Simulated assay, not measured.
Amino acid sequence: MKPNIGIINSMVRITAGLSMLTLLTIRANKTREVHPMLVVLASMKVAEGIVRYCPLTAAFEEMAEETDGIEQGWQQNLNQFSS
């Protein structure tokens, strides 16, 4: 598993994740209502920044990767059906 996000992106993710966790902690102290999924998402952002690996970015990069070297576009697909 090699890093797939840059240094700046990782710093932004760590900052955003810690900010979200701080706000969720403040909200939990005031209202006693915080959805656990929000805490999980915030902590995932912190973890992604520390490890410098994002699974969603890896999935999008894998889907966008060309395997045969031929660029497939919408125009090529439409021309195949018009014949």
Rank of each mutant, 00 (worst) to 15 (best):
M1L: 13
M1K: 05
K2H: 10
K2M: 12
K2C: 07
P3V: 09
P3H: 08
N4W: 00
N4D: 06
N4F: 01
I5R: 00
G6Q: 02
G6A: 07
G6K: 03
G6M: 05
I7G: 04
I7N: 09
I7Y: 10
I8L: 15
I8G: 04
N9Q: 15
N9P: 04
N9D: 15
S10D: 05
S10Y: 03
M11S: 12
M11R: 07
V12N: 07
V12D: 03
V12H: 09
R13E: 08
I14P: 01
I14S: 01
T15E: 00
A16C: 08
G17Q: 00
G17T: 00
G17H: 02
M20H: 13
M20R: 13
T22H: 10
L24D: 02
T25N: 14
I26D: 06
A28Q: 14
K30A: 10
K30S: 11
T31F: 05
R32V: 00
E33N: 11
V34I: 08
H35T: 06
M37S: 10
L38Q: 15
L38K: 14
L41A: 14
L41G: 11
L41E: 15
A42S: 09
S43I: 02
S43V: 01
S43F: 09
S43Y: 10
M44V: 02
M44K: 13
K45C: 07
K45E: 13
K45A: 10
K45D: 07
V46M: 03
E48H: 02
E48I: 00
G49C: 05
I50T: 12
V51C: 08
V51W: 05
V51M: 13
P55V: 04
L56G: 04
E62R: 11
E62K: 09
A64S: 12
E66F: 06
E66Q: 14
E66W: 08
E66K: 06
T67C: 13
D68K: 06
